[in-house]
């Protein structure tokens, strides 16, 4: 991990970035001839690591990847990767021999020996899932040229959990929905999404409540539809609807509740600029309000990028990179407050 200054992929501003923070697609693949990770012996896990490391670090690949052996790495380094959404919590904590391969800008990452032998993901800022699918498809082809995947004519790509079988493809978008939260309509979105076979969960932190009003929406169905079909439904029909809904709620706040909105937004900025001790949750809540204010043009001189980056920088492991690994409690809250002040002068 060289840089901690925020993911390059989230620094840029993609399409619809007022609502869509980032989008990604993940493919689950397994190597033929090996049992799935949960039943593989540690020798087989090592063989897989060795085999896939050779393939993934091969110079022929267009994508130049950097290898992190998670069995060797410190728990702090693993948590840092979790906070950056480059590995899952499960992957960080697993007992298996495991690794992750990352492109320099972290827009492409491959978890090795997570639930499946390969879990590859491509991330991009804003809503641009078509490009993301093209890139991961090409990358997948390069790997597929070098190894036989477990595949069945009826079931498609065979995955450890049958809920991923078929395409093995999971599309997701990370949405910032502060206005729907304020107007109490978030539950309606959740319910509608559920009916459409989509999963909605908070993106930062744990539990169902979403810190910072971020929600990750993803497809649940992986079988019986082609990748472009899944993408098409998701991206042309469903996600734009949620985006419009959030924008509509934002407009209503502007038109009908301007002083209330301004109060909320400027108080948030005041808190962030004044706090000397601040917890992660409060910081996320205030940053969310600030982000809403900036996207609606209620605050001048603060860039969206700065705020996007702060969401990541205020997470515990990111703070500990500078403040020291032992930093906790009030010390951590102090480090968080001072970092925020330095970013929002």
């Amino acid at each position: 991990m060289q840089s901690t200054s925020g993911q390059p992929n989230l620094r840029g501003r993609g399409p619809d970035s007022d609502v869509v923070m980032s989008c990604r697609v993940r493919l689950a693949r397994n190597v033929a001839g090996f049992p799935f990770v949960n039943t593989a012996t540690s020798q087989q896990q090592d063989e897989l690591i060795h085999l896939l490391k050779n393939i993934l670090l091969n110079n022929d690949l267009d994508e130049k990847l950097h290898w992190v052996d998670l069995t060797q790495s410190s728990s702090r380094e693993r948590l840092l990767l979790v906070e950056r959404h480059l590995i899952s919590k499960q992957h960080a904590e697993s007992e298996a021999h495991r690794a992750v391969a990352l492109s320099r800008d972290e827009t492409l990452s491959v978890m090795i020996n997570e639930e499946d032998h390969l879990r590859m993901q491509v991330l991009a800022p804003g809503l641009q899932l078509e490009d993301v699918l093209t890139r991961i498809n090409e990358f997948d082809d390069l790997i597929e040229n070098r190894v036989d995947y477990a595949y069945d004519a009826r079931w498609g790509y065979l995955t450890a959990c049958p809920t991923n079988v078929g395409t093995g493809a999971r599309f997701s978008v990370m949405l910032h929905l502060p206005a729907l939260k304020i107007t109490n309509e978030i539950e309606r979105v959740r319910r509608a999404a559920k009916e459409l076979q989509l999963a909605v969960r908070g993106y930062y932190g744990e539990g169902s409540e979403s810190a910072g009003d971020f929600y990750q929406v993803s497809n649940q169905i992986t079988l019986g539809k082609t990748e472009p079909e899944i993408l098409g439904e998701f991206c042309e029909r469903i996600v734009p609807k949620i985006i419009d809904y959030e924008r509509h709620a934002r407009r209503l706040l502007l038109e009908q509740n301007l002083s209330h909105l301004d109060d909320r937004v400027h108080r948030a900025l005041g808190t962030l600029r004044a706090a000397r001790l601040i917890g992660a949750e409060e910081a996320m809540r205030m940053l969310s309000r600030l982000r809403l204010g900036v996207t609606l043009g209620r605050i001048d001189g603060i860039r969206l990028d700065t705020i996007n980056r702060l969401f990541l920088e205020v997470q515990p492991s990111h703070l500990q990179v500078h403040a020291g690994p032992g930093c906790a409690g009030n010390e951590l809250r102090e480090a968080r407050a001072s970092l925020i002040r330095s970013r929002l002068p």
Partner: peptide, 15 residues
Amino acid sequence: QCGATHHCGKSPHNA
């Protein structure tokens, strides 16, 4: 999978 019984989509065959 909402009643789906067969894969359709990418395959090693058409990769």
